[in-house]
Amino acid sequence: THAQAKTRILTNCFWPPQHYMCTQVLPTWGEWVEEATDGRVSIQIPPKSLASPPEQWGSVEKGIADAAVQFNGFVANRVTGPLVAMNPFVASADAPAMSEALWDTYQKFFADEYKGVHALSMWVITPAEVYSQNDTPINSIDDLKSRKIWALPGTVANLMKKIGVGVVAGPAVQANEVISRGVVDGHIGLSPVSIAAFQLGPYTKSMTQFKTRIYSTSFSFVINEKKWAEISPEDQAAITAVSGPKFGRMAAQFWVNGDKAALAKFKSEWDIKVYDADPAFEAALTEASKFLTAGWIKRATDKGIDGQAAYDFYVDRVSALSKL
């Protein structure tokens, strides 16, 4: 079998080299691929990212890397479909379920949107929550309005601006700089695992959880079209079988495990209280966020996607698949 031509997929990982995406998720996928193709296709992950996070898709398109993971928020000008999972109040704590739901929605509604690259998989990470930095938990619109809030740019920041909250927005990796210095008294947009990863535990007093979560983040795993065409149909099928929802669930599970570990630390190390959101608060915020959903549906429809149907389908799939 060694005589056979070998294809090697140069797979980029933009997270820091020690992150589980680079040390476990992508290497596991590599093992699956190698096994499924009897060693005809293997992967190589460079020790350092070949491009900055916003440029992952572009770098695959240009052949700098063969495959890479793209945070969909950075490519809103290229694709609209996968942002269905980043609408307000469609998220569940069951990230693997959301990932499968997104893949199903992709296949049914927006498969044509991926041009220049071939979509290998998609996944959604564990949802963002609302955090208070002082002793009063945030559990009403008025609680929010009385504070200055750090928010993830995009959905969450726009929602906060809409209801009149003072917002400091910035990339997640710079959250620590703002939050640790007492510039704000609350923050929205991070899941518990990110609280731990960005060392925000000591600056956070309580977390408020909605029944349907306020927001989550989705990623696309894409491969260069020409590279994909180099692979024989037989091997393509084998790779597809270990990608799609199988890969998406596997990746998402790492965030679920991370959240579990972080929540344990909420109790044992940082004494962060966890509250369930008042249903009136959740209803009011859901209502206030309708304009964002309408905006997404319009953008999707403009792109030739049946926006309303895709949105409903995703929401139904998430609730059907969710076990958490």
């Binding site: 491009a51 900055s52 440029e55 572009g58 052949g63 700098i64």
Partner: peptide
């Protein structure tokens, strides 16, 4: 290792970043 076109794009991207 990757061809001229990717190498040139990489250079531009890297410098801009």
């Amino acid at each position: 290792q990757r061809g001229w076109s990717p190498a040139l794009s990489m250079t531009g991207q890297q410098i801009m970043d």
